[in-house]
Amino acid sequence: MKPIHCAACALALGFLAPAWAINKCTDANGKVSFQDEPCAGQGEKIEVRPAMQGASPVQPGTSTAKEGVFGATWQRKHYLQNQGVPQARAAVERNQQECAAMAPDTAVAHAGPLRRSTLASGSQFAQERAAGADKDKAACEARTNELRNQLKSLEAELGKL
């Protein structure tokens, strides 16, 4: 049989045994030894059971140890430097570009059959269009301010780390 097969068989047999007997023996000089055969002189029998059967989980204690090199603080700082802050800046810039693209198209207002010059001043069409543009502009400004506040909080957190 190959050595790997022997080791696997011995390991399997080890898991099948419900308990092992170990004897703690003391010789005439007072030297303590452990063996699987019964002691010739003084000794006591110790029952050893596999750790998996009666093991109770150890509760992690409150550790006052220092954080490791790649601990939670380092990970958060690394995230903020490489992803959090750059993505927040990109979101602000992208929002500003979208707001600029949403600006009312003045060429449409001056072209076609509904030219500004043919509309009566204070017409409903012009008022609705202006009100819609103001509403969109206010929404864009609010979103931009929200994104800027998020960016400032991420930068402040990064500054503290």
Rank of each mutant, 00 (worst) to 15 (best):
L13A: 02
E128C: 09
W74I: 00
S123L: 03
A101K: 07
G122K: 01
E47M: 06
K160Q: 14
A28C: 08
F34T: 15
R148I: 03
S121V: 08
T26F: 10
S33P: 11
R89P: 02
A90F: 02
D36W: 15
A91G: 04
I46G: 01
P113R: 04
A28T: 05
Q97K: 10
E93K: 13
T64S: 10
G122Y: 06
T106V: 12
D27G: 01
L80Y: 03
R143G: 03
A19Q: 07
Q150C: 11
Q127F: 09
T64V: 15
D105H: 01
R129H: 06
S63L: 14
D27Y: 02
G132P: 03
Q53A: 11
P57E: 07
H5P: 03
A10Y: 14
S63Q: 15
W20K: 08
S117N: 11
Q35P: 05
P104M: 02
D105S: 08
E37Q: 10
N95M: 12
A90T: 06
T64C: 06
R76E: 10
L13C: 06
A21I: 11
A17N: 13
F125R: 11
A65L: 13
Q35C: 03
G54T: 10
A65C: 13
P18K: 07
T64L: 12
D36G: 13
R143I: 00
A7W: 10
W20T: 09
P104I: 06
Q81H: 01
E93P: 00
F15L: 14
T106E: 09
Q127E: 05
L11W: 07
E37I: 03
W20P: 00
Q83F: 15
A139W: 12
T106F: 07
P57L: 06
A28E: 11
A88M: 05
K77L: 00
P86N: 00
Q127V: 11
C6S: 12
A51Q: 08
S153H: 15
L161T: 10
N149V: 12
T62H: 15
I46N: 06
A65G: 13
A40I: 09
A109T: 03
K152I: 10
H5Q: 09
S56G: 08
A40K: 08
F34S: 09
M102R: 13
A55V: 07
G43N: 04
R115C: 05
K24A: 00
M1R: 14
K160L: 11
A131F: 02
L16A: 08
L154T: 15
A111V: 15
P50H: 08
A126Q: 04
G122V: 04
A55C: 00
G30P: 04
G30E: 05
L80E: 13
K137V: 04
G43I: 01
L161K: 06
N149Y: 08
R94Y: 09
Q124E: 04
A7E: 01
S56A: 06
G41T: 03
K160W: 15
D136L: 10
A90R: 14
G68E: 14
E146L: 01
A28R: 06
Q96C: 02
E44V: 15
E47S: 03
P57D: 07
I46A: 05
R76I: 03
R89M: 10
Q97A: 10
K152H: 07
N23K: 08
A8C: 13
I22T: 12
R116C: 00
C6T: 09
K66A: 06
N23S: 10
K160E: 14
N95D: 11
W20S: 05
A17T: 14
